[in-house]
C-alpha cells in the first residue's frame, strides 16, 4: 500500500500540489485522473521520487520516501516497476534483452533462470516468440507497451506505476493493455497506480479513482461511484463527450 499524506509541491511561485492525501491500495488498480495541467503527473512523479516534495509524507508500506537516503531510494526502486508513456524501451537492446535487463542488474538468478523468467513475462503479455529477437523500433506501439509491461513485472515488483499507458494506441489495443495491467495487478498482488485521462480505461479498470483538480484532490471513489457524483468539475471532465453523457443517464 502507498499512502500520501498532505503533500505539497511548488515550482518557484507555481503551487502545483496543495495538501494532497490519498491511499493507493494493494491488489487494486488505483487511477489518478484529471485534466491537463491539473497536477496529476507531478503527483505521480512525486510519489516515485522523481520530484522532491516540499512537505508531507509518501509512505511505501510505512517507509517514508522523503526521509530516505539516495541509496535507500535506489533499494526501494528495485521493488518498483514502471510503464512509461512512450514505453522507454532501450533502443540498443532486443525485446528479450530489454526484459532480461533488470534481472541482470539485480537478480541473483543464473542466466538460464533469467532467460526463463523473461520468456515467461513476455508470454504472459501475449507476445509471440518471433518478436523476442526484434529491436523495439521493429515492433508496433501496442507491442512496445506489452514489452514494457513485461519488463516492469520481470523483477516481481510490489508497486507498479503506469504513466498514460494508452497514449497513442487505438481503442482495441488500449483495452488489451488495460486488461493486462488489471490482470498482473490482481495476479501478483501489486499496488498499481495509473495516471490517465482516458475515460475508457477509467470505466474499464478504475477500482480506486482519485480526481485531481487544480492541484487538489477533488474526489476519490471507484468506477461505479463516478456515475452518482455531484461534483461539477469531475462531471465536466468525465462526461465531456456525448457518449459518456448517455452512459451516465443510462446508469442513473
Amino acid at each position: 500500500m502507498i499512502e500520501v499524506k498532505n503533500i505539497e509541491k511548488s515550482f518557484e511561485s507555481n503551487h502545483v500540489l496543495k495538501n494532497v492525501s490519498a491511499v493507493f491500495e494493494t491488489g487494486k488498480t488505483n487511477m489518478i485522473i484529471g485534466g491537463s495541467g491539473s497536477g496529476k503527473t507531478v503527483l505521480m512523479k512525486s510519489i516515485i521520487g522523481l520530484h522532491r516534495i516540499d512537505g508531507g509524507r509518501i509512505e511505501y508500506d510505512g517507509r517514508n520516501l522523503p526521509d530516505m537516503k539516495m541509496s535507500e531510494i535506489r533499494m526501494l526502486r528495485r521493488e518498483v516497476g514502471m510503464l512509461f508513456q512512450g514505453s522507454a524501451l532501450f533502443d540498443s537492446l532486443t525485446v528479450l534483452e530489454n526484459v532480461i535487463y533488470p534481472l541482470e542488474m539485480f537478480s541473483p538468478s543464473t542466466k538460464e533462470e533469467m532467460l526463463e523468467r523473461a520468456r515467461f513475462c513476455l508470454k504472459h503479455v501475449n507476445l509471440e516468440e518471433k518478436a523476442f529477437g526484434l529491436a523495439p523500433s521493429e515492433i508496433s506501439g501496442g507491442m512496445q507497451k506489452r514489452v514494457a509491461i513485461a519488463r516492469a513485472i520481470a523483477l516481481q515488483p510490489k508497486y507498479l506505476f503506469c504513466d498514460e499507458p494508452n497514449s497513442g494506441l487505438d481503442p482495441k489495443t488500449s483495452l488489451v493493455i488495460d486488461q493486462l495491467i488489471h490482470e498482473v495487478t490482481h495476479e501478483f498482488e501489486i499496488t498499481t497506480i495509473i495516471n490517465s485521462h482516458d475515460m475508457n480505461s477509467v470505466m474499464e479498470i478504475g477500482e480506486n479513482i482519485i480526481f485531481i483538480e487544480k492541484g487538489e484532490k477533488a474526489w476519490q471513489g471507484n468506477k461505479d461511484d463516478i456515475f452518482h457524483v455531484d461534483n461539477e468539475a469531475l462531471n465536466n471532465f468525465v462526461f465531456a463527450s456525448e457518449l459518456f453523457k448517455k452512459v451516465k443517464r443510462t446508469n442513473q
Binding site: 516515485i48 522523481l50 535506489r74 533499494m75 526501494l76 526502486r77 528495485r78 518498483v80 514502471m82 512509461f84 508513456q85 512512450g86 522507454a88 524501451l89 532501450f90 533502443d91 535487463y101 533488470p102 542488474m105 539485480f106 506505476f161
Partner: peptide, 13 residues
C-alpha cells in the same frame, strides 16, 4: 525518450 528515467526507476545509477 525517458530511457534514463526508466533506468533510474529500476534503481540503476
Amino acid at each position: 525518450t525517458e530511457q534514463i528515467d526508466a533506468l533510474e526507476i529500476m534503481g540503476v545509477n
